[in-house]
Nucleic acid binder design. Sequence first.
DNA 1: GCCAACGTTGGC
DNA 2: GCCAACGTTGGC
Length: 155
Amino acid sequence: MKSEPDETSIDDALAARDQTVAWTGVRNYQARNFMRDQMQIGDGVLFYHSGCAEPGIAGIAEVASTCYPDPTQFDRKSHYHDPKSSPENPRWLLVDVRALKKIRLIGLPEMRAQAELADMLVLRRGNRLSITPVTASEWHHIVGKIAKAKKVLMD
DNA sequence: GCCAACGTTGGC
DNA sequence: GCCAACGTTGGC
């Protein structure tokens, strides 16, 4: 799951109550549908920093809720306000995400250098989805490289 | 700031 | 339903 660290970094998420943040601002149907149809509480999340000097995987997190309407869509003052959405018929959903651990940044060049990750959707040319599924083997390859991640996942 | 890539919008 | 125009994302 991509987040701009200027807005919500892995450090921000770890500092939040229960280390949990509501994943506001998704305004793409495919990304929304991943949250609605694919995610379950406890699923592993790679916390990815985008739109910054050093994009890459910055932490390990987990899905902490099922999906529910993103409140920012109803907030006229929010950057994420959607005038076409209404509480009676909400268009955009989110899940809560609990940060588990900050890890050594695995930057884009490092990710691209690994044959095991060559098919990761997030690395696809032109990919703009802020949420993409990760296969079990990709997940294991990444957390396997990080002692901290391995430790937290065994706890 | 540039630009490739892609999603959305809206006229027809 | 097509498709051009436009807006956004996001790496560089």
